[in-house]
Computed example of a mutant assay.
Amino acid sequence: MLSPVIDGTVSAQVTRLIRTTALQAGVAPAELIRLPGLDPELLGDDLMRVPVATALRIWELIHARGVPNAGLRITAAANMGSLHVWDYLFTTGPTLRDSLTAAFDLHAAVTDPAVGFQIDDDGRLLTVRYTGIEPEPLLAATEEFALSLLLRRIREATGLPLVPVRVAFGHRARGHHRHLIDAFDTDRVDFGAPHTEFTLLDAGSLPTGTDPHLGGIIRRHAELTIASAKSAPSWRDKLHAAMIDALIHDQVSLDVVAHRLAMSPRTLQRRLGEQGTSWREEVEAVRHSHATALLRDTDLSVQSVAARLGYTDARALRRAFHRWTGRSPDAFRREHAAAEG
């Protein structure tokens, strides 16, 4: 079963590879850190998932800097194990056909399930196909990355320098393409094709796995990785966590929260503006959600809840809670208790 956080996300491993290329291309770290899910600490967690929109934005930043052959560069950096358990799925079946089936069935371990991977094997020709979800300006780099990575993993799995008899891309040709001829070791490279794919001759039955029990363990681990995936918290999630922590310690101020987020108060105010909000609005939002949770989940008196939210007395909380919900804290509690009963 897919984790509910998988849709619309890519793995931390894929994001790390793209992010590294962006930094090497001269993209400023400050441009990346503000994107959802790109906190370096979060990217160190192999179960973390990053929004597809973030990954596409990194590709856009790379594209804007005119990095040549960006997709091939990322593949060159993607050593075995870079993509965690998914890399090892290419050796979990007795034949290449079987191993590719396992890797493609579990491709959600690294990317959005909306991305498509297919194989077509007639016993003679083995075609590996990729269907991406990227917008047109990014197609060239992402398609080249996907196909070159798949060919690299196939070569590593079989231990053979397999050469495609044909490579096809959905994007249009961009001048010379010597880099693709060199990468795929063939001059049969087509553009503007109906499908992004490459075809190998007499490859489907090549051996890739030697221990069926180990293969089963790896597949089960990939399934657990997908099921255990975690959404990367947004910048606002981290802001609210810092604000709640400050509330608990009765220190909810712009200066204190900015310090907890390792930024200056001025930077925090600028970030709030970029998010279309303000310090006052976020304090109200956090107090509202935290008040609701305390009234719902604890037996604390209204006075105690008010104190935990930084209000001077219960009357201030009652006024605020009525403004948020149109009800008093006591009425909210009674309604919640009735609904639970």
Rank of each mutant, 00 (worst) to 15 (best):
T210I: 08
L35W: 07
L106T: 05
P207Y: 14
R188F: 07
R49P: 05
G276A: 06
R323E: 14
Q13C: 15
V50H: 05
L47P: 02
E197R: 11
R152A: 12
D202Y: 10
R65E: 10
A30V: 04
A140K: 05
T92L: 01
R219Q: 15
T325L: 04
V14D: 08
R236G: 02
I74G: 07
G81C: 14
G8K: 05
A173M: 12
V10F: 09
R318N: 13
T54N: 05
T21K: 08
F184P: 06
A12C: 00
W86T: 07
A227G: 12
V110Q: 13
W235G: 12
R155S: 02
R266V: 13
R19G: 01
F90N: 06
G81W: 11
L294E: 02
R19D: 14
R271W: 07
A306D: 14
N69G: 10
G310Y: 01
I244L: 09
A306Y: 11
T142S: 15
A78T: 11
R188G: 02
A114R: 08
E136N: 11
L126D: 01
G170T: 13
L56S: 04
D7F: 06
T186K: 12
V189M: 09
L149G: 01
R327I: 08
V67R: 05
F145C: 14
W324D: 08
A222S: 07
S234V: 03
I33D: 07
G341Y: 10
P135H: 14
D245E: 15
T199P: 01
E41F: 03
D45T: 02
I218W: 09
R188M: 09
Q251E: 15
L149C: 03
A28C: 08
